[in-house]
Amino acid sequence: MPYVSNEEVTAAVQDRSSEQPAAGRVARILDSDLFHSFLRSKITVVAAVATLILFLLSFLAPWVAPHNPFDLATISILDARVPPIWQEYSDPRFILGTDDQGRDLLSGIFYGMRISLIIGFCSVIAAAVLGISLGLVAGYMGGRVDSFIMRVADVQLTFPAILIALLIDGIAAGIFGGVDREFFAFYILIVSLALSFWVQYARTVRGSTMVEKNKEYVQAARVIGIPSVIIMVRHILPNVMGPVMVIATINLALAIVTEATLSFLGVGMPPTQPSLGTLIAIGNDFLYSGEWWIAIFPGLALALLVLNVNLLGDWLRDALNPKLR
């Protein structure tokens, strides 16, 4: 069927911009529409800088934190529940005050954020690998393989991630019977988060794969005789990564929130290795007795981290969506 693009104007504009001489890689990135839309949105720039600072603070926690909250030698129960420095009875050593065991809250937040971030990244990567592989296979193979994978995804999608994570956690606790819970908690969290979030990747990748599969460049590769696995990895995968990046960013925020929630509910990280959620859970007990800072400061740190990541994800989604440009 003959086809004439309705958007001849856009096409013409693009034609003209392609007349520019080919520049180096860095120059091309700096000149790309993506980068320009990034600079245009001031909020996004602020969010990117803030995210970077938060990441640095948490990954460099052992060097930048004023105290080591895990070093029992430096902790004194006499310093417990000291308020932040602008309040009465404060201690200049503890800017944001201390928790119930006398640990410096600011340092605790840095270390806690580090644990939250590591769990977030690991679970996002695990979920992405699982989801992308299954989505590629389902979308490319079609037929029974596809219906099986997607039925599983559909059933799972009817349950919110938090519920699945809770269930997996409960089952794991049942299997390991409470032994070495402190040791396993970290891995159980990653597995349960990954198993709760893979569906989104799989569905998105499957959808894009089904579109790409019918595009003529894939047919051309098949006519050349290239085997399916190579077509999937070399040809289709790079073309479906755009939406995956968006999901991964938004899921990083979601994973951090879910991890915090699980820890808050007492089924995540134990108090000996506190993540932000654990810190808030500890602080929650002291909320009514006036020691509000123990819960509120870690909570604000969590909100700040998640908000910035979400801002980046939001911008990325709009910037990569050609329809909204």
Partner: peptide, 29 residues
């Protein structure tokens, strides 16, 4: 036997350089 397709916008993999697109069949065979 080889084939030339209708839509010039979707018949080339946008993520590959033109050189690699043309080299692929030569290397593969």
């Amino acid at each position: 036997m080889q084939m030339i397709f209708q839509d010039p916008y979707s018949s080339l993999n946008a993520r590959m350089r033109v050189r690699d697109i043309i080299a692929e069949p030569i290397k593969f065979h």
